[in-house]
Design a protein around this nucleic acid. Structure first.
Lengths: 332, 332
DNA sequence: CTGAAAGCGCTTACAG
DNA sequence: CTGAAAGCGCTTACAG
């Protein structure tokens, strides 16, 4: 900018006015400035600008996801990007892999670069370290999972209700031995879905059989292995509830691997792109991920626009999409 | 930092030394500085730091993808994130949706925030606008598609060879009427794959039937619609080559919709998570997306480390994974 | 081991 | 309509 001022014979302040389209500069002078900028390949430095500007905004937000390449995370990412884009805001994104220390590292890396706000799917169980960031003006929104030790805007799905509905759906079809494969119990959504499962059983006064409930499974392979074993037992379950997308894929593989895909019912949580084309088509509890991302971004920008009201908690409904896999009845 | 200096009774320079772990500060003084920093909730401002630092590095890179929520893009993203993370570098990511103006907008938004480098899957047909950025020190790497009107490091897959191999595979099984569904012909990978298809036909001296070649298809629905129509014709193809992941899903849907999944052969390009569980399992040409992302990131960091050698072009091999869908023979 | 002065690229808060 | 001076939070290039 200094060089542009020198070449065009204008002051720094005038160059700044032209570059930012502030107006109040004569046609002739602003023409000279623009020409000089072009000749010197001048590109404004937004970091320097936000360092000095009174609002201090960097037009940048940080997004902390479970894993940018997981379909749930990346759908969230896209929805948030679109809302941000409409405001000229760009997005840092990173993967936490359920690692609390990675969460702190990334949050610190983002705030050190002075993002205006942070949207996160928290991995750890204590987000109080973000308090000083918020006091410093960083907006905070949690999505998919609420924060702990900190009060902030949150967007969650009806995990418990969705799991309860899915389990009730299987119970209605006569199933009494419904296996449950779930993620780490420390994850909010995993705990909620498990609660939905147990509530549905309790309503029908079915005692919970611990041998059917398998937690701490995170990958396709985890679910595949556990279910292959479970399906080999003489008292195998008559139905399976897989409470997360990767686990559902593992369940499909295990059923296929043991040739029981038409004998044991299945309901999964989260969407799978080809679920309707599998044999049998798979019943799923799906989340409106785009709505969750849009809502989270809107909450963030509302805060950035100055809203100082109490924290909001938005709940987005899940949908049970019924397909043939859950119409399989238990053996008589 | 000013306040920390005041509270601890040290100079700005000394606080800077302590914060950056430069050493050469007495235990006593650095203890006082650290305590003051804690009391004031001091968090260093990396933007201000890189503004003044001689190397000017922001430890930030920008990633321009087709669509962050497309599995190919997000797998690339994750691979690049992991390499960047090992160097304490964080990643901006954004979606271009095949829009050249969006490419320029995002590239400008990233460079205005002084990213150290840019890794992109270009959408437009002219990247010469990046020349001044590179002269200003921004490293540039292209992945999946080479740049145009600009020479830069590039990582591509063996698109042409992979498509040729897939087509030859169908020809070997006696197919002569192989439908081709492809993306916008302006996309490098789409053009390469089409070339591979036509080359394979030419080698066997099979004339290309234009009624079987459908380009300009981008979504699952596009391929679904076109193929349903094609499969309804009396002279329908005996095999289909779908040259991209979404188009392959559309092809699976069209075959299933017309009940021909066991009568018409299919090969797809790109990986599908459940391809092996479909009926019939689908033969695919897969790319090693992780290797492509890792290679691209390594090239970028090599440049940032000062390598000024000539542009490199790395080629990553595709793999033909044979499954039942391509073993279907044409009717006698 | 410690610090005072200058300056990175920009905007603010003036003044004319 | 235009510009000179100060300062955002930090590091550089000194000097002692």
């Amino acid at each position: 900018m200094r060089e542009v001022a020198a070449l065009s014979g204008a002051s720094l302040k005038t160059v700044s006015r032209v570059v930012n389209g502030e107006g109040g500069v004569s046609e002739e002078l602003s023409g000279r400035v623009r020409k000089a900028a072009r000749m010197l390949d001048y590109h404004p430095n937004l970091s320097a600008s936000s360092l000095r500007r009174s609002d201090g905004k960097t037009k940048t937000i940080g997004l902390l996801l479970e894993n940018v390449s997981n379909p749930f995370s990346s759908a969230l990412h896209r929805a948030i990007e679109d809302v941000a884009r409409a405001r000229g805001v760009i997005v840092f994104a990173g993967s936490l892999d359920e690692d609390a220390s990675r969460e702190q590292e990334l949050a610190t890396a983002f705030t050190a670069r002075r993002v205006d706000g942070l949207i996160m799917v928290p991995a750890g169980t204590d987000q109080s370290y973000l308090l000083t960031e918020r006091r410093a003006g960083t907006a905070l929104v949690f999505v998919d999972r609420p924060p702990s030790m900190l009060d902030a805007d949150t967007v969650v799905a009806t995990n418990r209700e969705g799991a309860r509905e899915a389990t009730a759906h299987l119970l209605e079809r006569g199933h009494r031995r419904i296996a449950y494969v779930g993620d780490y119990a420390s994850i909010f959504t995993a705990a909620e879905r498990l609660a939905g499962y147990t509530e549905a059983l309790a309503i029908e006064r079915i005692p919970l059989d611990p041998s059917l409930v398998h937690l701490g499974l995170h990958t396709t392979d985890d679910a595949h292995r556990v279910l292959l074993e479970l399906l080999r037992r003489p008292d195998r379950p008559t139905a399976i509830f897989a409470s997360q997308n990767l686990l559902t894929i593992g369940a499909v593989r295990a059923l296929r691997g043991s040739g029981l895909q038409h004998d044991v019912a299945l309901v999964g949580f989260d969407d799978l792109p080809l679920a309707d084309l599998l044999d049998p088509p798979v019943t799923l509890v799906t989340q409106d991920v785009t709505a969750m991302g849009v809502r989270a971004a809107e909450l963030l920008f509302r805060r950035l626009d100055g809203d100082t009201g109490p924290s909001q908690r938005h709940v987005v409904a899940t949908t049970l999409t019924r397909r043939a896999s859950s119409e399989i009845r238990p053996p008589a």
